[in-house]
Each structure stands twice: as structure tokens, then as C-alpha cells.
Design a protein around this nucleic acid. Sequence first.
DNA 1: ACGCTTGCTGTAAGCGTTTACATTTTATCA
DNA 2: TGATAAAATGTAAACGCTTACAGCAAGCGT
Lengths: 338, 338
Amino acid sequence: MTQRTNGRFTIEDVAALAKVSTATVSRVLNKKGQVADKTMARVQTAIVELDYIPHSGARQMAGGRQNLVGLIFPGIGDPFLAELLLGIEQSLVAEGYELLLYCTQGHSSKDRRAFLPLNENNTDGLIVFAHSLSESELQRFDRRDFPVVLLHQTPPAGLNIPCVTVENKKGAAKAVAHLIGCGRRRIAFLSGPEGNEDSYWRELGYRETLAAHGIPFRSALVKDGSFSAAVSETAVTQWMQDGIEIDAIFAADDNSAQGAIFALQQAGKKIPQDVAVIGFDDVSFARYTMPPLTTVRAPIMEAGSKAAEQLIKLMRGETAVSLTLLPTELVIRRSCQE
Amino acid sequence: MTQRTNGRFTIEDVAALAKVSTATVSRVLNKKGQVADKTMARVQTAIVELDYIPHSGARQMAGGRQNLVGLIFPGIGDPFLAELLLGIEQSLVAEGYELLLYCTQGHSSKDRRAFLPLNENNTDGLIVFAHSLSESELQRFDRRDFPVVLLHQTPPAGLNIPCVTVENKKGAAKAVAHLIGCGRRRIAFLSGPEGNEDSYWRELGYRETLAAHGIPFRSALVKDGSFSAAVSETAVTQWMQDGIEIDAIFAADDNSAQGAIFALQQAGKKIPQDVAVIGFDDVSFARYTMPPLTTVRAPIMEAGSKAAEQLIKLMRGETAVSLTLLPTELVIRRSCQE
DNA sequence: ACGCTTGCTGTAAGCGTTTACATTTTATCA
DNA sequence: TGATAAAATGTAAACGCTTACAGCAAGCGT
């Protein structure tokens, strides 16, 4: 026997107070089935009276809907996330779902093995951002037909999990073509972290566009910026110290662009006169850099809301679109041309 | 009867495969009680074999420890949060807890009434940041002796909930005193959102320091910046348009400072020559503004980790320190003096 | 050989819901 | 009015765990 005599009230207490059965209380709680208006009022009064809160564990066990979806993502604090979340919640709240977040930063996937705290038995569905889950975890969800939508990551081979992402390659191509149009030829690329899919496509767009304009690709002009201002600052500083000539930097995201701008200015370079800089995402701070950052606008909020929409379909048992590709757009500010 | 015949395995399946009872499986799962080495090995093999995952709902019901704590906060995307989270996880992970996040942005507290998705029956404790929960919700936790720690918010009257925050008033005083020391006299203040406690103390520090130096307080020099670059930009632009003379701005946080810097530069002001700017928090981007931002460093990560420590004490049934005040420190960069 | 202790394992009750099904009440219609 | 359908409510099983308690085997001292 367990010791659970904390002043918590249960559905039975509510039922007793309202002089109905627990089934009826459950019906009003879930707005399911028929309940007479008078009875419903009585039950609701009792609920308020006792400050009753349904026990989520018991609900899970009984197999009811949780009205809960989880978002799993690698790290917090990126302005990117703020927008993403806004989009996700927009779609979700309309359908009566709540959103819980789990951040995998600092957890090895081995630690998580037995204990991913958001999973198929305490949520109705999951949105997984970038590579925050291992392939085997995704496989497990797939095997169990558990609703999952991938954001900014295409599913591993063989798994049919819907995916929402943006036109990375096209966006990168627009950025690089613009740089070339401004007369730049020595265009460097600051990549994202190893294995990141967004970065992969952005780099491909960069390479293809160079090629299309007859500019040879030079590996010395590519460094890892890890989507981080600090890492990018170091990388750019290194280029300067090595005396590598660069007249433009295409950064795989806005954070890297920010670090690049800082490093360039430290090195006494004028932006955009000496070196032009273009970022990717158009996060909120992009207009606050000095000079304001030219960047490829990714419809982040829309991506979030589309992902949630697909998840909702899945949770309803409908089929979802397996790939949603959102268009990107070049936003020209002053970091690129006066 | 419910239809839960999704390929999910239960503890019984594991027990059957390992030829033991469910009690034994439970014991190895929770590392509780005695189990012979050979048996344990057999059970673990079975767990891996079936890719078994304990049902969290069932665990909650049976009254076991959840190994889960929740963080409730108002909005995501602030670099502030990234550091906070790091600190919290640091302490938590060491004790075997996982962290789930719930963001109240865009939920009225009325919506949440019955359904705060992180609560006393699915977590072992909660960390509540700033004013993300209503007083009545806190009261409920208090009545039920549920472990809660407040971050950057003192508890409502009558509730004995431990609180961790920083020396806002002292920090603000250092900032303003420094500005005055640099010869500034027309010092404006960009406040945080209405009702925010950090902002309240920072403003008080601002006022008291002015008074201590015989500088009269002028309400025209205080505007709401809402901890937001965009709002602050508007506010500062308004000052410029109104022709209010200002030779320094003390912003209640770094976001506001960033907006202020931008607005000032738009208006053709030189920083720091014409107007000095000081922020608060020392978030990661503070050194990337141009000029780099002088700011009051709040030990955000430490605050997170202290909060988690107090929560752990509470969850163990020990008593926690009711108020932890962390020291702040002025970080001088170039936005303040060449 | 006996009773003790100690280590290991099993049995089964109980946690708080949801829901299929049974039952009772109310409304409808000839 | 009585028969019948529809609406409202109740009964009780099932969900998958944890843990108090009981049982059993082996080791020990006498």
C-alpha cells in the first residue's frame, strides 16, 4: 500500500459532493457523452469547491486523450525558437492542446534511453526539431505508429515521418547570387555544426551558385561557425590572421553572421565596403546589428504552425503531407551594400 | 474496456521473458531493494530485448518518484534562459532528475485553471520563473506542501516558498553610480514590463542613486522598454523626437539596451560620446553589440543552479533557505566610456 | 538437528481515471 | 394511456505500475 493521503481530492470526492457517479464527473470533465445541464452545473460547482485537478497519470492509464503534445529540441535561448514556438502554439491552442518542451542539451542520448520524459505514453504526439533524437528513438515511434512530425530534419531512410522545413538550398542560392551580383568573388561560407541538415543544404546552395557563375570553390573559404557567434568570431579572426582574402561572408545562420561582423570590425574591416555579410533566418536581432544584417528570411513561425497542423492530422488518424517545404526570401539590409 | 493493444510491452512481458515476477522487474528498474546479480542481468536483457519503456502514468499512480522537475516560465527565446537552464540542469542532472519546460506565453491564466500541464501529480517539484503563475496557483502548491522554488520573484504574502534572485538594487546602483562618475547627469531609465519585480528593484536602485548624488528624479526620463529591443527602440526614438536631452541610458535589461543603442544610432547619436548606455544581465550577445555593451552581470547560471539545489532539498523533505540573493557585478565595455 | 538471521523472490492490493454496458428516467407518439 | 425510443446516469473492469508482506532457501551458531 502506498502513502498518498496528501490533501488531494479525487474524482470520487467530486462525485460524492455532486451526488453523481464518477462516470458522470468524467463526462463533464471531458465534455464527452450526454449530461443534463443541471447535473453539469452541480458537478462544476463541486470541482471548483474542492479545487479538484484530475490526476494526469490516472488519465494516461485509462487511455484517454492527454491534450498534450511535446516539442523536443536541442538547445534553448536561440531567438529562432521563440518564433518557432509562437507558430506551434498558435495551431495547437486552437485545437485544445498544451505544449511541453524538452531540451536535449547536455544529455547524451544514452542517458535518455529508458527515460525520454516526453514520449508515447504521456503525450498525444511529438514535434522533433533538427537532430535532437537518435534514429533508434524515431524508429520506435514509427513502429508504434505514434504521431511524430520532424522540423528541419528529413526522416531517416525507411521511416515515413512527415517533415516540415524550408527551402534552404534555394535561399542560399539567392544570397550567394546577390553577393556575386554586387561584384563579390571571394565569398566565404560559415557552416553550421557538423551533421546539421539545414547547414548541409545551405552549403550546397552556396557551392552550386558559385559553380553556376564560374567561381571556383575553395575549401579554405569554408569554416565551421556552429550556428554560434563565439565560434564564428574565432573562425573569422583566424581567416584574418591567415591573411586569407575575403570580400564577402555567407553565414549559415544569423548568430554566425553576428560573430562574423564582430570579428571583421575588430580586424578593422568596414562592412559592407571591405566585406559584405549575409546571414540566414532573419531572427529578431538581425535588424539590430550594425550595420543591419542582410539575411535570408526563413518563415520560422509558419514552419512551426505547419508542423503543428500536420501533427494534428496525425493525431486524428488522418494522413499528413510527408514533406512541407517553405519558401525563403532575401531581406536586403545594409550589411551587404550601402 | 479500452483499446490499448498497440504493440506496447508492459512490465509483465518483461517479467515473463526474464522468468521473474513483476516485483523483481520493478526492483531492478528502480534500483531499490535486493536483487541477485544474475537475476538483474536477465531482467536487463529482457528490457533491452523488448525495448521496454515504463509507463509514466502507471508510475505516477503507484506513487513512485518521478525523477522529473518542471520549469515554468513566461517566454522563450531570451538568451537569458539559455544560461538559466544550463545552471538548473547542472544541479538536477547530478541528482538524476530530468527537466520539462512549460512556457506560459500566450495562455491566459484562466485557460490554465484546470490544466497546468506540469503539476503536483506529474512532477516531483517545480521551479517557477518570474510571474508566470498566478497567486492562487502558488497557494495551491503551498497548501499541498508541494516542492516549489521561485526564481526572480519573491513569494506572495503568507506563502513560505523559497526564492532565488539577484541583487537587483545594488547592481542598478553600481551602474548608475558609474554613469554619474563618468560625468553623466541626464540619465534615463528604460524599465521592464509593468509589475516585473526585477525591474522594480532596478528602478529603485536607479532612483536612490540619483538621490544620493543630488540629482533630481525626472519622470520624463523613465519609459517602458518591456525587456524588449523593439519596444525600447520606440521609446528612445520618442525621446529623441521630443527633444529630451539625455546623456546616458540605464536599461533594465540587455535587450532594451540593444534597442536603445540602435535607436540612438539611427538618430545620429554617438555612443558613448553623446549618450552612454548600460544594460543589465550580461547575456551572451552583450559583447557583440557595437559598441560592446557595458552591463551589470547577473550570475544567471548560478541562480539557476542554486534554485535547483533548493528544490532538491525540498523534494528530499529537508528545509530550504527561504531567500537566496546573488551578487551582481558591473562589467565595463565600450558603450559607456571610450 | 534446531532455530535464527539474512538474502532473494513472489503475491496481490491499490493508485485515479475512462468507458462499455446496463439500467433508470424522461420524452414522444399513436 | 401504454409502448417505445431517446436521454441521462450508474456499475465495474481495466489500464501498468510500486510496494507491503509473506514465503523460501541457505548459512550460521549452538
